[in-house]
Design a protein around this nucleic acid. Structure first.
Lengths: 329, 329
DNA sequence: TTGTACGCGTTATCAT
DNA sequence: ATGATAACGCGTACAA
């Protein structure tokens, strides 16, 4: 490995000057700079980020913890966080907690002292554990508001309300809610919202599930809905909704005439590309870039900053979801 | 931040002893060990992995570069690599190259000096650039065999041959190949294999596409196939295949009677759960854990090891794909 | 078994 | 503008 000292020696300057060439280019004479750079890439010098991190007291590494890496829901978030973070000169380390609360905090412990901050996406851990982590380093949560932690969340309630009203307007009175996955914090909230809104409008909502958030689980659920005699369904998830539609198509049921289908999120952005579904589009990409920006803001702040100053300015950002009306409803 | 020195002072021992308690527990007296541990977690000591990395000359960090994070194809690979790597006490940093060759090597440059090794999954970069990276640190490629770099790849050719023979046996003579995505290295290979095998058996293969690897792109392609009068299609990808099937169901075309559908990979493992498709199952999870193991093996080797020793033992692991016969064919 | 002292590669302070 | 030097936190010969 070729070090800064090697470059300095080769260029005939001190290692301090060589260091400045890369860190503070303007603090060094134009010609010396040229010489050093020349020497550097002749020797193939690459800065050792570990040493730099130790000297500067920060690693330039940020963490993102998601419950499921392969989830279509988080894909745009992950992508956006990565863009945002790299744009600010940080590196991103993405970890999959596999939906397991204990592993979330286990991950936080492992990452401690290695990253400058962490984003927890839809964390399932107890708030206390997250707060504990937040005292160790900057933390931003997504879809989870905790008193002392910056957060950005998507307001599905608004879109869901709009959706329920749409269904009522369309004449539906009995509406199925097909929920999932088991253990999801947001599932209950969605059901309750639907029940309230629809109940207030003289309708009734039947809760089915929970089912796995997969196409086949959706397909298998169709008969259940048909037996219950429902003609409108709100699916937890676009995969489930498409399973329903797929099964409906194969048994000759018409959408939306025989069964109106809607979903709480869509899959347009993530390469599945099934646009005509009536769904609540959640701006996960936007959420990701906002969360990324918030974390960078915290992490970039000189570590000497008075902790109290940071504690007093907790942000809770809420992004609106929008109802996209397709042909399935 | 509480350092090892703090712990040592608190415990009344030297920092060397404190260090050994965590690194070489057996080299320290039982009671001193207890005291140090006591002091450590009373102070809430967490080892600074940056400093450790600098001192030991390795970071305990491995990198995984994928062309697309949200791809259902790579999801099981990513998951497996992560498991494997964590099992060996490493941390994994996952980066999305967005399918852009330049960004692959750009990433390699950025990660240099920060990670102990990298896995490139289905890299599109020129071989020379990858070889260059491989001289800087341990590298393993997936689905790309380069002379001097360890690799593990999945042999789709075998499964595809089998599939073609199946279609021929079923009586098909004119078979469509619906390819994509643009720029994929493997796409050409698949088409050529299909043409060769089917041609050898007196059949003919028509190439369509490339199309985006999405469900909707598949759905939109159906009419194209119907106009061409084909009754059997091999889709690049299971998403595309399901788009075709979805479109077929809605226009009343029967699968497999009117149109036999097969795909080169499936989506069973990744939460889409659509099992009845005839498809070539690629063991991406297995590939991931093997690649992870290979990289760990390289990275864990003491850095003082003679470079020549490592250079002479390049491994190219090839995993078989298997044809899974569903109802669509 | 334990302590002393040095090195890892870089940045930052303080001279010059 | 540049150079000497002290950190940064930890591992590890080497000595005791």
């Amino acid at each position: 490995m070729v070090t800064l000292a090697d470059v300095a020696r080769q260029a005939g300057v001190s290692s301090a000057t060589a260091s400045r060439v890369f860190g503070r280019p303007d603090m060094v004479g134009a010609e010396t700079r040229a010489i050093v750079i020349e020497a550097a890439d002749r020797l193939g010098y690459v800065a050792n980020s570990t040493a730099r991190a130790l000297a500067m007291g920060s690693s330039g590494l940020l963490g993102l913890v998601v419950p499921q890496l392969s989830s279509s829901y988080f894909a745009p978030l992950i992508s956006a966080v990565q863009s945002e973070v790299e744009r600010s000169g940080f590196e991103l380390i993405i970890v999959d907690s596999r939906g397991c609360p204990e592993s979330e905090i286990e991950i936080a412990r492992r990452l401690r002292g290695r990253v400058d901050g962490i984003i927890f996406a839809s964390p399932r851990s107890p708030g206390a554990a997250l707060a504990e982590a937040a005292r160790a380093f900057p933390v931003v949560t997504v879809n989870r508001e905790l008193p002392d932690i910056d957060s950005v969340s998507v307001d599905v309630i608004a879109g869901l309300t709009e959706l329920c009203e749409l269904l009522i307007t369309a004449g539906h009175r009995t509406i199925a809610y097909l929920g999932g996955p088991p253990g999801s914090i947001s599932d209950d909230g969605r059901f309750l919202t639907a029940r309230t809104v629809i109940g207030d409008n003289g309708g009734e909502v039947l809760r089915f599930g929970p089912v796995e958030p997969t196409v086949s689980a959706g397909a298998e659920s169709l008969s259940m809905l048909q037996e219950a005699g429902v003609h409108a369904v709100i699916a937890y998830n676009a995969l489930v909704a498409h399973g329903l539609m797929f099964a409906a198509a194969t048994v000759g049921a018409r959408v939306p005439d025989d069964l109106a289908v809607a979903a709480v999120d869509d899959l347009i952005d993530i390469g599945l590309g099934l646009p005509s579904l009536t769904a609540i589009t959640q701006p996960m990409g936007e959420a990701g870039s906002r969360a990324g920006r918030m974390l960078v803001g915290q992490a970039a702040r000189p570590s000497g900053t008075d902790p109290d100053t940071r504690a007093r300015t907790i942000q809770h950002l809420v992004l609106p979801s929008t109802l996209v009306i397709g042909e399935t409803c």
